[in-house]
Design a protein around this nucleic acid. Structure first.
Lengths: 204, 204, 204, 204
DNA sequence: GATGAATGAGCGTTCATTCAT
DNA sequence: CATGAATGAACGCTCATTCAT
């Protein structure tokens, strides 16, 4: 009815088919997880927001949990890209910290609420068989690796256990940016203080 | 310990009744919130664990949320007591950091999981009418106050915004201890690294 | 403590003991059944309103239903007394109708809400083993008896089945006064219309 | 009647599905509200009676109250249709009363208990946000309108306040038919008495 | 692939009633 | 007589998931 039988010249312009229902679902899921949180978002809500049938949700995700984890993974990848685009191997400690923080705050600014939503403790979304490591811990591990590299190249003190200070750095950044956005703090001031704090803590 | 054995021949030592159902419920609630988290713990589970009827739960708490908030408040008070017992006004920066961290780690050791459970984001337990500030932010504010005092007495650099580095300190401690307990790290090493990290970040 | 051991000169002036807890409970029950209705009134509420312990309620009533039925019986007795005080055997039809309606409206005015609350359909308060006749039907029976008397003494048409017009009269009175109080109608006008209506319907 | 039997070879005559769960629920709700009353009927009971899952109930009604109100509305519409089919504008007073009562008693006979169940005081089903007027009052208003018309066309005495005698008529009819069905009175006798009663009360 | 009506275990909570004191 | 802490069956309702179409 009114839907042309012609091979959809008008809507699927190029490649193969178009499973854009997945894209619509992912966008809707992100929107709702950010706005309402994991528990207050029902698969039905996501499907309606995406303007697809409720059943379609389960064509693309085995369950709600998987959908949330997928959202978290996307956020992580996007943030990684932001960071990789701004830091270079030759950065000094100050530069590396400053560039990374800039990347994180830029991401948070253009994707408001996403980082906070993505960091919902996984204990909260799955009492029992949770994944090995919460997202925050994995991000802490990334910082541990960075710390190891900085120590190896003599840019920071070698007296630290990288695994531990990696978590410390991540924790400081996370809490400062989370609270900063809740309290609507001035971004430049936050960045400046946090950069100074981390650089002094690490400098050789 | 400290509870006199005199007169307790049986179980109900002297006069009257003993409306200890509240105590049993609080203990049960703590146990289950720690073991399973807020969402996976039902009022009914708490009542059964406390060995009282379902309805008794609602004699003492208006709802599940209030029970959780009560648990959080208790944890906060207990931890405050631990900290106050170990730090003194005349502590140097190093001492203050070390003593506070000792207190936190002692508390975490003798009450495993409690701090993590208590820090469940309040957004998670009550979408709408949540309290103004999450517990973590309030603890960050406490650190901000400490930072202000240290700066005023010349023990740390005055170039920081206390509100921001307060949150940074709290974030570092929280993440290090949370991840540390998940990864079963050596306590002494964690303490040592974290103390050094914070002292260097703050020292004048 | 502070309660005189002297044989209560001050409080139980005359006869025996004083089981005034029953009186307090009955007053409280009436107040709450009128204000909130049967289902929204809990035995606990009645006990608290009466300022006695919850258990005391069950010392005087086997259950909530019995308490309500007791309230209904009281209302019926009181209204009967009002009516008996105003009508006499020698009243003409007009007088009898007018006096009875005056009695009912007087009672309703000095005990607002009581008649309405007392007429709550018993189906509503006890799904299964209800009493043989709802209160309204029993009041209708009373009117049937009155009609029989009026017919016997030639004051009204004899062509009616008293049982049926008894219910009709009661129904008209009940609905007019219930709706009249809900719509805050003028009492005199209501009385005048209703009297005329019933007299014309019955007059020989 | 009016539904063509053509094509209904089996049960699902032609196209698609048949979302008759609503119809089954409405029938089940009517049955149970009539048999047990509002408070003794649980949504779950209605669903089981309709042979659908509990949740299906909430697909069609926001809550139990809405389901009951829907039942009431249906009953009112059905009865209105019965009455409209039997009375005409040119009826004399006697005819109008007689035809209307016939319609009501016919409806009550072919839908036993429905009118009584539908007239459950709305105060009983919803303490707070109830509708402006109970169903009975609204039916009384309908009678008031009828009385106004009769008075305007000179068919009844003009000395009445239509609003009040409207309620009186409705009250008489309601109580007589409710008690009549409880006492299993002879329908013809009841009709005869009630018609005479009302006609005499109203006749000019 | 896509749909959305249907499901029912499970939720947080209430309240009429009991009974040890 | 009086108490009120305790009870637990029962309530109205939600929502992650399935499956016939």
């Amino acid at each position: 009815m009114g839907k042309s039988a012609v091979h959809s010249l008008d809507e699927a312009p190029s490649r193969r088919k178009r499973p854009d229902s997945l894209l619509k679902l992912k966008a809707a899921a992100r929107k709702l997880f950010v706005e309402r949180g994991y528990h207050a978002t029902r698969p039905q809500d996501i499907a309606r927001e995406a303007d697809v049938g409720h059943g379609t949700f389960y064509l693309h995700f085995p369950d709600k949990r998987a959908c949330f984890l997928d959202f978290v993974d996307d956020a992580r990848s996007e943030l990684d890209a932001y960071i990789r685009a701004r830091v270079s191997q030759e950065d000094t400690l100050e530069e590396l910290i400053a560039h990374t923080l800039h990347a994180i705050f830029d991401y948070a600014e253009s994707h408001p609420g996403v980082l906070n939503a993505a960091m919902t403790d996984e204990a909260v979304i799955d009492a029992e068989g949770a994944q090995a490591k919460p997202l925050l811990d994995r991000w802490g591990d990334d910082w541990a690796e960075t710390v190891r590299n900085l120590a190896r190249t003599g840019r920071i003190s070698t007296q630290y256990d990288p695994a531990i200070v990696g978590q410390a750095i991540l924790g400081a950044i996370h809490q400062v940016s989370a609270e900063g956005s809740r309290s609507r703090r001035n971004r430049a001031v936050v960045l400046d203080n946090l950069t100074k704090f981390l650089v002094r803590a690490l400098k050789a």
